[in-house]
């Protein structure tokens, strides 16, 4: 696995379901400046499917999904 990127903002959304990790990411992306990198910690396995889908649809960049013990760190860069 490549070296993990540095993030400008890290959101710990582990073990949360409502509104959930994707909603937390959308909020952070809206608040971020173009070029900033957001990391989301999620223990919800659905996030590994939903976050890349949304990132692609919204035109941002999925930098990577990094597996940890019991959760994943999903890293996204704001592109526009």
């Amino acid at each position: 696995m490549s070296e993990e990127p540095k993030v400008d903002r890290l959101i710990d959304a582990r073990n949360t379901f409502c509104p959930g990790p994707l909603m937390e990411l959308i909020r952070a992306i809206k608040e971020a400046k173009v070029g900033e990198v957001i990391g989301v910690l999620s223990s919800d396995t659905g996030s590994k499917r939903d976050i890349p889908l949304w990132t692609s649809k919204a035109g941002h960049k999925l930098i990577g999904i990094y597996e940890k013990a019991g959760y994943a760190e999903i890293v996204v860069q704001k592109i526009k």
Partner: peptide, 10 residues
């Protein structure tokens, strides 16, 4: 819906 489904909780 802002999410990939109607309701926030899957």
């Amino acid at each position: 819906s802002p999410l990939p489904r109607i309701f926030p909780i899957e």
